[in-house]
Design a protein around this nucleic acid. Structure first.
Length: 117
DNA sequence: GGTGTGACCAGCT
DNA sequence: AAGCTGGCCACAC
């Protein structure tokens, strides 16, 4: 069936993965931004839930580039070790202080603004 | 098949 | 000003 809207995948989950994979190197985004891009602001929780499945996903999901609205590394505990997420971010040149991304607004990558159909 | 929870966000008290 | 509840959708028991 020809969908009028460009749906990347059949599942909300894979939609999240697609957006996260599109996050450029050295950039970060928030759960709410991804959820809002998909059309549901309140589905922000689902984005985090999808990240949980990202661990099982075969594809490399840069989940460390996804932080909460405050730029805080809320999901650091789900990387196996709470230090991995910060190290990955620092490895990309992103400064992290106190489990928080510095210059978050500068590094913030909004899919709604950057991705254009 | 209903209930609860979850890496969130925003509004109300 | 700060704390809490509601809301959203999907998965586990």
């Amino acid at each position: 069936m020809a969908g009028s809207e460009r749906q990347i995948s059949d599942s909300f989950f894979e939609n999240v993965f697609a957006v996260v994979r599109l996050i450029p190197y050295g950039r970060v985004t928030s759960y709410g931004a991804i959820a809002g891009y998909l059309g549901s602001r309140g589905s922000a929780r689902m984005v985090g839930w999808a990240m949980n499945a990202a661990h099982s996903a075969v594809n490399d999901i840069p989940a460390h580039r996804v932080v909460n609205r405050n730029g805080l590394l809320t999901g650091k505990n789900h990387f196996g070790s709470p230090l991995i997420m910060q190290q990955l971010l620092e490895s990309e040149g992103i400064e992290v202080a106190n489990d928080q991304v510095t210059r978050f607004e500068q590094l913030f990558w909004d899919p709604t603004m950057e991705i254009q159909f």
